[in-house]
Amino acid sequence: MPQLVKLFQFTLSGLTTGSTYALIAIGFSIIHNATGIVNFAQGEFVMLGGMFMITFYGYLKLPMAAAFVLSVFAVAIIGLLLEKTALRPSRSQEVLNLVMITVGASIFIKGLSMAVWGKSAMTLAPFSGEDPILILGAAIMPQSIWIFGITLAVVAALSAFFVKTRTGKAMRAVAASRRSAMLAGIPVNRMIALSFFLSGALGAVAGIILTPVTTISYDAGIMLGLKGFSAAILGGYGSMIGAVAGGLLLGVLESLGAGLVSSEYKDVLAFLILLIVLFFKPGGIFGKGASRRV
């Protein structure tokens, strides 16, 4: 049954990229829950993660684990800086104004990255070899297993953080109602800063594990950000389970589309899905119907 094996193969590779979309989508959700804005620079965090990893691991020859931690931390700090230096001091705190500031930040980071790392695409060696492992006739790269494993670990850790820890609960309280959280004595501004820090870290992880599969260049951020956003919309904006489901679903649909229909129009397919979902079910697959208080 070669046709079935082929489908299985496409699904596997779709789940691989889908896992990174899920991480990016969670980053979108965390910031959205804390502030109500869409952070257009989320994709740049992913690109920066890959770039830092290449710099620390590929050029400076640091041990892999150290390079990983350093890259994640560096991008998390950049996320924090975005909030502290661009969004917090803004004179208008209107949502659309803040959203457009992140658009500006995204172009700015892109331009800066071009100046630092140049225009050509950079590669990163897979974490452990390139010998494919055969499962039921389909080949799976060791890097894919890394991607699944790390995504799973990150999602598990985040879930535990939001459910078990005081800080996580405080962040959820801010998401539920900023004013009530403030009245309950939660340092809201610190929680907002933390959400940018976390989103930066999540984006970096996605970038680091994805780079060995796809290579990375200074202008890759927008596309990755859009994919992550599509995933977040697909699953229902703001929900973590939705982000994971949306990411995996988008990855699989994209991979099946590329394999069975046409690889040139792979990205078109992703956005058509986004537009169709926005048109027919703006709340996402897992979302509830939106209602607004006047």
């Binding site: 803004s90 004179r91 208008s92 457009m100 500031i101 172009i107 700015f108 980071i109 331009g111 071009m114």
Partner: peptide, 17 residues
């Protein structure tokens, strides 16, 4: 070019919304 545009966009929005 890209860098300058991003900077202008950010600065204008921050200080002259």
């Amino acid at each position: 070019n890209v860098l300058v545009y991003g900077f202008i966009l950010m600065a204008v929005l921050m200080f002259f919304p």
